[in-house]
Nucleic acid binder design. Structure first.
Lengths: 234, 234
DNA sequence: CTTTAAATTTAGTTGAGACTAAAAATAAAT
DNA sequence: ATTTATTTTTAGTCTCAACTAAATTTAAAG
């Protein structure tokens, strides 16, 4: 079974990504992971990729060679990889698909917070430009997904994000609105959503001690361990 | 890149297909094509599959062996193949995905008749049971797709179809409603939709000669060649 | 029957993208 | 400057699902 291109009915004057090579799902995933690791790590090593892709280091080296030869990444052996401009565009396209899909699943198909990631992970590689455009339009070209993560625009720019801090940095008495939740862990997402600690929720910092922080949400008050508080940004 | 199962959060008492093996997209496609060829052909040969899958006969033989060993088909060498009960269930599941998706793309994402097939072809292999259930429910558990083809039910029964005839069998003066269009050819679908020869359209047979048939649709009258008339069932 | 044409199967190859085991390079610690 | 531990790369293997070329089986025609 050979994967076919499906760029929709791109007219002659639709450039977007010129000479975009047809990539396998694996290759798209490598680029996406490199991009996301880079947001956090400064350098992206073979081992980083091995861990995040759950693939042996030797396999990563193999794929790095291929992506290098395709000029999608730069590789300094034993040092790490960086996306080329084209590589980054492709990574952003995959990310755009993923985040649009996550929002779509929540808004139109009644998915819950914890169900969207896996589904989007599979769909992101197979939807056409037409599909991407259709759901984006339907949702009014949104800029944030259900975790508060920015959705790259059609021309693959990342929308401005306001500066955020994790809730554990609030001081007692301070109010805030949840803007972003940095986890895909189903159990954590489920727990947070049961506590109504979801995007746009209003919270009040009550206080903190070594065990964690105390938050008031609506009429309820909760003790949140630091490990989880660090995932919630306001 | 290894394909993962994604049967949704099947509780312990969801049986549906017991011990359903995890199939590759190729394998699912073979089963689907065997099913569809069988609806038309009486026997399904290596060559039939080679043509419809656009794969060399030798490759078909190879896959036939694998699917046989998995007990998804029976194979009488040099004769042809038949789906086992499990093989048929899987074929129907793929077909259900495909047809639900086609209808969904038309009803909710504004796709046109000619755009839905390719998109559904890719999506059918990756959507979860959850996704299938969600779109089915949203559309009121429909039984016909945009070509008029029956959509297998959740428990994989094919809904009853009324007996139909192709329009070329109508006699002059007879009125009818289009129920089904048996092609995926984009140009033909486009043409038919421009002529408003779409599902549920009312037509009047005016007459016929060796060049084709004359149909009245609304206020317009068209000459339709037999090759195309045979695709339209009422 | 025997020949011939067509369909099918066998055998072996290829390319992706994983894997393991072993070799080599780097970085840190004496 | 060596040794040691860690990371990375090399080399070779495996599986899947395609491929080609050659061999075999079946069916039709003389």
């Amino acid at each position: 079974m050979v994967r076919m291109a499906h760029n929709g009915s791109n007219g002659p004057n639709k450039l977007k990504i010129m000479d975009k090579p047809q990539l396998s799902e694996s290759q798209e995933d490598y680029l996406k992971h490199i991009f996301k690791l880079r947001e956090v790590n400064e350098t992206v090593t073979t081992q980083d990729l091995s861990e995040s892709l759950k693939v042996r280091p030797a396999s990563v080296t193999g794929m790095i060679k291929k992506l290098s030869s395709m000029e999608l990444i730069y590789h300094r052996p034993y040092k790490g990889v960086v996306l080329t401009e084209l590589g980054e565009k492709i990574a952003l396209e995959v990310l755009r698909h993923h985040r649009l899909l996550e929002l779509y699943l929540v808004d139109h198909l009644n998915y819950t917070w914890d169900e969207i990631h896996d589904e989007a992970e599979r769909l992101e590689h197979v939807i056409s430009e037409k599909f991407e455009a259709a759901i984006s339009k339907l949702m009014g070209n949104p800029t944030r997904d259900p975790h508060g993560d920015p959705i790259p625009s059609v021309d693959l720019e990342i929308p401005e994000m306001p500066d955020l801090v994790s809730v554990d940095r609030l001081h007692a008495g301070q109010e805030a609105v949840i803007q972003r939740v940095l986890t895909q862990d189903k159990d954590i997402l489920n727990m947070l959503s049961r506590l109504e600690l979801t995007i746009d929720a209003n919270i009040l910092m009550v206080g903190s001690d070594k065990t964690g922080i105390r938050l008031k949400v609506g009429n309820n008050q909760y003790l949140i361990p630091y490990s989880i508080a660090k995932l919630i940004w306001v």
